[in-house]
């Protein structure tokens, strides 16, 4: 079932975006009532959760609450949603332009680098070990045509590119990797992590299994103390992807962190996925990746290459949505008559 020759390049399924209608409604009113023609970047919050159905991936979702409210400057969304297991908050930046021309003219490569640099800095300073959600960031560029209620937009999920790429030793369903006793204990430990409001939205973690098949889930900052106890250690993360032979996008910056902070050449990872809201080791994956530390990665000053603009039906182009039906007063009046 491994389905991969050893030594093949580890290939990741890209994050996918989903925007709730309420996000565009709030952006429109924010633009009309507060932002005006101000084009400064706006900090926003996206939400994701582990894959919860074997046939569909989870998405990075934007809701009305992703935007700062009109009344006060600071977004309270992140603080409010803490502890909601279906909404792990991810930081993002919105660049909303005033014209379609300036939308097209945005320098996408350098915007992506700006966001990637934040990830790179958080890895080097160790902030990402303390607050692992910092490893996944996103970028949204948009043009809101409030005359026609059309919204043009494009997401990017920046990742630091390992060069040469990581290779795969093996990859298999977690239910095959663990013994029965271990699997039971790992499931219980992960469910406990997901059910506690303190850890439910912490998307990166360590799974430590002792010789008696007893598993515990720990914070990344406990990595050093895990080195001396001789337990089997896996790098776990909430995997939004449902595919049986590919890990999801968040593993990429995770590998970068592991490589920079802990200098590991061989990494055993757990793509944590759920079914009906509970740990599902049949769809979760355990794999081993080999990393060759790229040149210059020890140096905080040399930012590696980054990629991550979202694909739309196989191509890297922006998306657009028309909300005239729910926003155009003329149409609303006609449909209400």
């Amino acid at each position: 079932m491994a389905g991969h020759d050893s030594g093949s390049i580890l290939v990741f399924a890209q994050f996918q975006s989903a925007v709730d209608e309420g996000f565009w409604h709030r952006l429109s009113s924010l633009k009309l009532n507060k932002l005006g023609i101000d084009e400064s970047p706006i900090p926003i919050t996206g939400y994701y959760a582990p894959c919860s159905h074997p046939q569909v991936s989870n998405h990075l979702t934007l809701l009305a609450q992703s935007l700062p409210s009109e009344s006060n400057e600071q977004s309270s969304a992140a603080a409010m949603s803490r502890g909601n297991r279906n909404r792990c908050p991810i930081r993002g930046t919105l660049y909303n332009t005033n014209t379609i021309e300036s939308f097209h003219k945005l320098d996408k490569k350098s915007l992506l680098r700006v966001e990637a640099k934040k990830i790179w800095d958080d890895i080097h300073t160790g902030r990402a070990v303390e607050d692992s959600a910092l490893l996944s960031r996103f970028l949204l560029i948009s043009f809101a045509d409030l005359k026609k209620w059309n919204f043009h937009y494009w997401f990017a999920f920046p990742v630091l590119v390992l060069d040469p790429p990581a290779t795969l030793v093996d990859l298999m369903p977690a239910s095959q990797y663990f013994s029965l006793e271990e699997a039971e204990s790992v499931s219980a430990a992960c469910n406990e992590w997901r059910n506690s409001s303190l850890t439910a939205d912490v998307p990166f973690f360590l799974v430590s299994t002792d010789p008696n098949s007893h598993a515990t889930v720990k914070h990344l900052k406990d990595w050093e103390t895990c080195q001396s106890d001789g337990h089997k250690l896996l790098f776990g993360f909430y995997d939004p992807c449902h595919l049986p032979h590919n890990p999801g996008w968040p593993l990429r910056n995770y590998l970068a962190l592991i490589c920079v902070r802990w200098n590991l050449k061989s990494v055993r990872f757990l793509c944590y996925r759920e079914s009906r809201g509970f740990a599902d080791l049949g769809s979760s994956l355990v794999g081993e990746a080999l990393i060759t530390v790229p040149q210059g990665w020890r140096d905080h000053q040399s930012l590696p290459n980054a990629v991550g603009w979202e694909h739309n039906k196989g191509r890297q182009v922006p998306r657009s949505i028309s909300l005239a039906k729910s926003m155009d007063p003329t149409r609303l009046a006609i449909s209400a008559a």
Partner: peptide, 20 residues
């Protein structure tokens, strides 16, 4: 929305072997 309209100014090709 006609995607062809946006293709020219925006089409971006990131070359990366590790992206599915």
């Amino acid at each position: 929305p006609d995607m062809a309209d946006y293709e020219e100014p925006d089409n971006l090709v990131e070359v990366d072997a590790a992206t599915l």
